[in-house]
Design a protein around this nucleic acid. Sequence first.
DNA 1: TGCTTATCTAAGCAAACGCTTAGTTTAATA
DNA 2: TATTAAACTAAGCGTTTGCTTAGATAAGCA
Lengths: 190, 190
Amino acid sequence: MARTKQYKEEDVIQKAMNLFWRNGFEATSVRMLEKEMGINQFSIYSSFGNKHGVFVESIKAYKSELNSIRNILKNSNNGLVGIKQFFYDFLEFTKENEEGKGCLVCNTVSELGNKAEPDLMVELMKFTEELRSLFINNLKQDKNRSQEIVEKQANYLTTSMLGLSLGSRIQNESELEDYIEMIFNPSLRV
Amino acid sequence: MARTKQYKEEDVIQKAMNLFWRNGFEATSVRMLEKEMGINQFSIYSSFGNKHGVFVESIKAYKSELNSIRNILKNSNNGLVGIKQFFYDFLEFTKENEEGKGCLVCNTVSELGNKAEPDLMVELMKFTEELRSLFINNLKQDKNRSQEIVEKQANYLTTSMLGLSLGSRIQNESELEDYIEMIFNPSLRV
DNA sequence: TGCTTATCTAAGCAAACGCTTAGTTTAATA
DNA sequence: TATTAAACTAAGCGTTTGCTTAGATAAGCA
């Protein structure tokens, strides 16, 4: 016996996520969210509590959007080749109008650092850990690595992803390709 | 026949820089700058025009502070060894209370991206270019590299520095050490 | 010592911020 | 069809933002 919602929360979060992705948390105002999400501030606050709530849901939406390329890595069983493919898939994933906008999680870590709210921090950390464990899985598929080397290499690849994320926002395609090739091609290495 | 300034501009910019470094541009308010710089808003605006002006001067101050470790790299003539040392020097440089605060220039690129004002963008780009050319210098010291490989490797090292900057803010010392060792130790590579 | 003028203090500006609330609309139930 | 309550609109809350300005202070020269 009451009015029904005119919007689906997952739809408007998708739009919010894209806005946060382009502008970051602080630089995205509730008025901007209102416009982009197509709903009134009242609806935003009744659905998500506050701006921070919208952001946390946006991060979750980001992660499930990333699942498309994450699953390719997850289902691969060709070791390094699969990881390298993930790096290229990621580049494509972050591209918008020929310009990279980086990884939303990495951007957020960079913007908020350690002053992110605990519940948000949990989401950010889970993201990094999941990525690292996917790298470990694939590294183990190439049998000739010791556990110690696998750990070191997984750390290396994780930090390299941070570089790729930031790099995707300021470097051109050929520089980024050089970067990825250099990571995975031993004969080119420094 | 007039009153003299109670402060040196280079002194107060040093303090402003540290505040921007810790908090980023947007999250640093003029009231916070007032407190940290120890001077009134009137003095801030009469010396630097606006908040953006304070920031541009802070970036310049950052770059000259970085000169201490940049010169070590510049004066080195041992190729890769010198570059590796620079990576470690940079980690030490960005450390504050056992926690990294990244590279101010990289943080700024991440925060503002392509919506930075042109004069600021110039400073940010110069920074990256100068770093890249220092890498090229040292890479050329090891004689067995072709020009093409030198370019590719310089690109690789530049993007790797972006990863180190962001990594320094969220990863622990041993993960960062793994990362650097992995970059420069071919036998550990993926 | 008194005048001049740049530098200081502190109050205040309009605009934007995150968020709330009073009042209207609308769809499902009785 | 009348009732009911959740979802809507839009105005506005207090605070903070970057920046300005009127008036007090003080240092250098006559």
